[in-house]
Design a protein around this nucleic acid. Structure first.
Lengths: 99, 99
DNA sequence: TAAACATATGAAGATATGCTCAATTGTTTT
DNA sequence: AAAACAATTGAGCATATCTTCATATGTTTA
């Protein structure tokens, strides 16, 4: 039997990663971004919350490097680059839909 | 470009799944259970919180069917059965450790 | 059956989270 | 330069979350 448990520091980081996916709005944001990059206004329409709320979420996601931003004129386009993150997210979606 | 976004209902379920993994204590609990079933007292020692706190966490995890319980005398042993859940969790751990 | 042990439950407090509103910053157009 | 547009930021509020404490339930042993 393995006597190893993740140390608190690592566990905190793992928890932070999963926490990024633990809110309905962020899940909708990320699922939208799987279809390609979107700007803040488009995300606000798709998710049904204010641009301000989207912006707050994007800041968190950006700080965790789960999304990257690209400015084009007045608009900022967000996308999910990391294939591991995409795979992780999709796996969660799949698990839920298989029930 | 895909115009589909997860509907709110599905997104909520996905968020709930990830939320189960979004707390440091629960991450430690689950990582401990990857090494085989453990009872509440053992988990409390390993994670460093009270048995009561463990019990509260286990209730949530049980309700989400992420763990199963087996009583043996006074003790209740918890385990993670679902291989998809194990895979999902491990993938999160891996992602964090690869940074 | 009483005592001891393991787990579960409910309440209460401290902290964290997510949202909107109002104001600000940055960019383009007139 | 002013106006219009897009995004960001900070404050404040409502709600959720996690923990401990005290108590209750369930099981075994004396």
């Amino acid at each position: 039997m393995a006597l190893t448990v993740l140390d608190e520091h690592s566990a905190t980081h793992v928890a932070e990663l999963f926490r990024a996916f633990s809110d309905t709005s962020r899940v909708m944001i990320l699922s939208a971004l799987l279809g390609g990059e979107k700007n803040v206004g488009a995300l606000a329409d798709l998710v049904g919350i204010s641009e301000s709320a989207i912006s707050h979420h994007m800041r968190g996601l950006r700080q965790m490097r789960l999304v990257t931003a690209r400015r084009n004129g007045k608009e900022v386009y967000y996308r999910v680059d990391d294939p591991h993150i995409i795979a992780l997210f999709k796996q969660g979606v799949r698990h839920v839909q298989e029930e």
